[in-house]
């Protein structure tokens, strides 16, 4: 939760696109961590016993998220590189052209 909050705040207050990006990663990973932790915690509960795959579900999700995060990093970083080439800046507040 703390990691997640750090990530959110980071996204909100930082202006450097790369740091914002890192903060998003931070949020994703905090969720991953949570998933794994809860999975371990609940593995012994009666509910889990009823379903054969329940214990491993959360861990499978983590892998999904990691794959998505990887894809996102590639696309996101590519975007940031393109941005830098065009504007010579990675400041997100500078990129306010998309408005009314």
């Amino acid at each position: 939760m703390i990691l997640f909050t750090i990530g959110v705040v980071g996204v909100l207050i930082r202006r450097n696109a790369i740091i914002v990006f890192m903060c998003i990663e931070l949020m994703l990973n905090s969720v991953n961590l949570l998933l794994v932790a809860f999975s371990k915690m609940h593995a012994l509960s009666p509910v889990a016993k009823a379903s054969p795959t329940f214990a491993s579900d959360a861990q499978v999700f983590v892998f999904f998220i990691m794959v998505v995060a990887a894809a996102e990093v590639t696309v996101g970083l590519a975007l940031i590189v393109m941005l830098y080439r065009n504007t010579h800046s990675v400041d997100v507040n500078f990129l306010n052209r998309l408005k009314y």
Partner: peptide, 17 residues
């Protein structure tokens, strides 16, 4: 209402949060 569309990504995210 369109003034909400400020172009500031931070603003959008804040709203989202």
């Amino acid at each position: 209402l369109r003034y909400l569309q400020s172009g500031q990504i931070g603003g959008y995210v804040l709203l989202m949060v």
